[in-house]
Design a protein around this nucleic acid. Structure first.
Lengths: 248, 248
DNA sequence: AAGTGGTCTAGACCACTAG
DNA sequence: TAGTGGTCTAGACCACTTC
């Protein structure tokens, strides 16, 4: 049970509380969108002062694993609608405004992991994976091709139908159906040239420059959830990144 | 004087304290690398509890404007050596390790701002600017061309000689000589094709894909300091970005 | 009115740094 | 030993939400 006295330990109490909260969330004790116990209850349950609880919760709020709502409670982050979308979707138009992509799934198949995919997903080579190809359109024109690889073990029963029928972002599907909450991503960006099928899908001539984004999505404890390789046609859009300030 | 009682206000005390600290830092009252007054002194000076001071300092520490050193004090962030470099320099090798670039300045001239530069630097069109072109080499090969634009007004007396003679990063120069502390950057990334002089400088054929990074560096109150357009040859390196976790 | 998070206080004790 | 930040407590009062 998550709400039990803390065992003796060298680490600060607020770190222990923090760890317990992460446990509870990733074990599904409190699901996405649900409230965790009130600060007073947590303090009582863990046998620590309320200020200590607040410090632990503060750090999880800063990481966006929890959100506070005054007068209501503290909730496990729910990736509903555009909130999550824009947290991890960084393509913006010339004027800096973000545009909502329209997603079309053009391939969905089961496969075995090659060496690179296995390493990225921290699974064994030849383990089962699900591969998906999406074409994303911005303002009506195809601008992004996403190749997604998932460890099949983490997503039992995922079919093309349920995948395509989702009425929300992919990360929302991971969360609502499998309780997997994407908290962090690690991205590597390069410039490449369009060729073959990619060029055709993006409606650009072979040899056009594309932005390639190789992203690994991570959940609690930095466990990899998804490998995604995106190619973006950036003549009318760009990838937007802000460094430095993450807190108010 | 920064250490004076706070005036009546609606905003929380810790935000007022935070604003005063930012004032003191940007006014140069406490310079980069120097300690601010102890938490007890700040609490006494402002007439608030020490916990309130801690909350204000916490937020500035999270933004990396201050650093705490237990037993010694709280210091204004000093961008020494590789700390800053790697905070804002995101190019890494295939294995994910960051490599130290070798910088060569090939152009340094004074100019008037065009419309785009003026907008980026929040100055008037035709205001004086300094333009610099650097070639950065990674592992002995030219990989990046940087075109830098600075508002001349912010950098009085900056000459090619002092610029080239710096023995540290450019942001360190801004800080040590002009008291300008770069805290945040806003970057837009696109893929472009190499051509003309750029291709020659990077030793790639015209038509090779390059990663273009358009960066605006900001100091306190989001005041723009520098506009930098980088073109990166990404066949052996990539741009590395981590999203989500910014706090421990 | 009751319950929640948000702010703020006043103090205790610990761990680290320096003279 | 004195001074600094780091942790933790116990409580007060406020603002917001819900019934």
């Amino acid at each position: 049970m998550s709400l039990a006295r803390l065992p003796p330990s060298d680490s600060p109490l607020y770190e222990q509380v923090r760890a317990r909260l992460i446990e509870g969330i990733s074990a599904g004790e409190w699901k996405a969108g649900e409230a965790i116990p009130s600060e007073a209850d947590l303090a009582g349950g863990f046998g620590v002062a309320i200020g200590t609880i607040r410090k632990a919760v503060d750090s999880l709020v800063a990481e966006r694993a929890l959100v506070r709502r005054q007068g209501k409670g503290t909730f496990v982050t729910a990736h509903e609608g555009s909130r999550l979308l824009f947290h991890f979707f960084h393509i913006a138009g010339r004027d800096g405004r973000r545009v909502l992509p329209e997603v079309r799934t053009i391939a969905f198949r089961r496969d075995r992991a090659d060496r690179e995919t296995a390493q990225a997903l921290a699974i064994a080579p030849a383990d089962k994976v699900i591969r998906i190809r999406n074409v994303l359109s911005l303002e009506g024109r195809p601008r992004i091709v996403d190749d997604i690889a998932l460890a099949a073990e983490l997503f039992p029963g995922l079919t093309e139908k349920t995948f395509v029928a989702r009425n929300n972002t992919i990360y929302h599907l991971y969360q609502s159906r499998y309780g997997i909450n994407v908290l962090r991503t690690d991205e590597r960006l390069r410039a490449v040239l369009a060729e073959g099928e990619l060029a055709a899908l993006l409606e650009v001539p072979p040899g056009a420059p594309l932005l390639e984004i190789r992203r690994i999505a991570l959940t609690f404890r930095d466990r990899p959830v998804e490998l995604r390789v995106s190619r973006v046609e950036t003549s009318s859009h760009h990838y937007h990144n802000t460094l430095g300030k993450e807190l108010g």
